[in-house]
Amino acid sequence: MDRITLDTIDLSRLVYGMWRLGDDTDTSPKHVQAKIESCLAQGITSFDQADIYGGYSAEALLGHALRAAPGLRNQMEIITKCDIVAPVGRHAAARVKHYDTSAAHINASVDASLSDMAIDHIDLLLIHRPDPLMDHMETGAALDALVASGKVRAVGVSNFRPWDVTLLQSGMTNRLCTNQIELSLVAHQGFTNSDVAFHQERSIPLMAWSPLAGGRLLAESGTQLRARLAQIGADHGTDWSAAAVAWLLRHPARIIPVLGTNSLARIGTIATALEIEMDRQTWFELYTLIMGHEVA
Rank of each mutant, 00 (worst) to 15 (best):
M1N: 02
D2E: 13
I4E: 00
I4Y: 09
T8R: 14
L11Q: 03
L11W: 02
R13T: 14
L14F: 10
M18K: 01
W19L: 11
D24P: 08
T27Y: 02
P29T: 13
Q33R: 15
A34I: 00
K35Q: 13
I36Y: 04
E37N: 03
C39R: 02
C39I: 01
A41M: 05
A41N: 10
Q42S: 02
G43W: 13
I44G: 01
S46M: 07
F47R: 06
F47A: 03
D48F: 05
D51F: 01
I52F: 06
I52E: 00
A60L: 09
H64R: 15
H64A: 15
L66S: 05
G71T: 12
G71Y: 10
L72R: 07
R73L: 13
E77I: 10
E77V: 12
K81F: 05
A86G: 01
P87Y: 05
V88C: 06
G89R: 06
R90S: 04
H91C: 12
H91V: 06
A92S: 14
A94M: 00
V96S: 06
V96K: 13
K97A: 02
Y99Q: 09
Y99V: 03
D100H: 04
T101Q: 12
A104Y: 00
H105P: 01
H105Q: 13
N107E: 14
A108E: 11
D111I: 10
A112H: 07
S113A: 11
L114S: 04
S115Y: 01
S115A: 12
M117S: 03
H121L: 04
L125W: 09
L126H: 04
L126G: 00
R129M: 11
P130I: 01
P132L: 02
P132V: 06
T139E: 00
A141N: 08
A142R: 05
V147K: 01
A148M: 05
A148V: 08
K151Q: 12
K151W: 11
V152I: 09
R153G: 00
N159Y: 07
R161W: 12
W163D: 14
T166E: 14
L168E: 04
L168S: 08
Q169V: 09
M172Y: 05
M172R: 10
N174E: 14
R175V: 12
C177F: 01
A187D: 13
D195G: 06
D195W: 15
Q200Y: 13
E201F: 11
R202I: 10
P205D: 07
M207R: 08
W209M: 04
P211V: 03
A213S: 15
G215D: 12
L218F: 14
G222F: 03
L225Y: 07
L225Q: 08
A227R: 12
Q231E: 15
A234K: 14
D239Y: 07
W240N: 02
A242E: 12
A244D: 06
P252L: 05
A253K: 03
P257N: 05
P257H: 02
P257S: 08
G260H: 06
G260V: 08
T261W: 09
L264F: 10
L264M: 11
L264E: 13
R266C: 02
A271I: 09
L274Y: 08
Q281P: 00
F284H: 15
T288G: 15
H293C: 09
